[in-house]
Amino acid sequence: MAASLVAAAPLDAAAPLAMNAAGWLLALAQTALFVAAAPLFAGWIKRVKCWLQNRQPPPLAQGYRDLRRLFAKRVRLADQASVVFRIAPYLVFGATILAAAVTPFLSVNLPTAAITDAIALTGFFAFARFFLALAGMDIGTAFGGMGSSREMTLSALAEPAMLMALFTVAMVASSTNLATVITSIETQMVMTRPSLWFAAFGFLLVAVAETGRIPVDNPATHLELTMIHEAMILEYGGRHLGMLEWAAQLKLLVYAVLAINIFNPWGIAHEDSASALGLAIAAMAGKLLVLGIVLAVTETLQAKLRLFRVPVFLMLAFTLALGGMLSFIILEAG
């Protein structure tokens, strides 16, 4: 085993690839919790936004009620719908669940975290996006094609910024494995590293773009011409729509958890004991509440950008991440 290479990380060298049944069960439970919590987080952001805008918020359980309603509804298909349209919701939801499964949520001691690293995690989202965009073009409506075209354009510009932020973190931790990254950052003095500050801001900006929030996209819009994500799923209904909505909420939660756990990981469990996990749940819940408020406040203060202003926004994210990389190489390494 390559124990000598990871002297910096206080982790058992054999742990990531070990196959123990209890660990896998725990990973499964954590993934289930992850998936189940997604509508709640989206509901929380909506609630804070309602408060800020002097509106009556829906109950926190409204997200679950909507999903139940959608899953109970019958599916209707457009005449031209091909098999891609029918299978896309399953693949999109499945790939997003996979992304959630490999993201350390409460514990870094996660056997599934070794399946992929940070780069492959973006690969899962790319997979989901690929099928979503194809589904948008399948019916042959102008709105669907418009959504697909915009989504692929913006994601193409977001991808280098996202990977540059992840590269910075990976170079600081000298690993792209998420569990190792989190452990390594937890044991280092995060606040004294300008590279991580840059990377964190870059990451947050890209995450806003990737999850389709204001100022890049507006998930609550009803105006078709401004839609990106919603335009692709206009023709969906029933359980298909339910899966796509849930996948979008889960994607938001995965990015939120990534931002929290990479840049502010204190409290995350290192062992599978009840006390450690309990603390981790409490810490994660608290941090998500705060992040939700921050998101809601920024979304309330900002207007949606024009489509052709978004590249400037993403360029800013890339520049920040690049600044993180350069400041690591110039100031911190060597």
């Binding site: 060298a13 990531p16 996979l98 499964a101 070794a114 399946i115 997979f127």
Partner: peptide, 19 residues
Amino acid sequence: AQKASYSAPLVFAGILLAV
């Protein structure tokens, strides 16, 4: 293993699960 690992068969199994 600590630096990066990728298990394509397990990813494939995950996609197969969705199908």
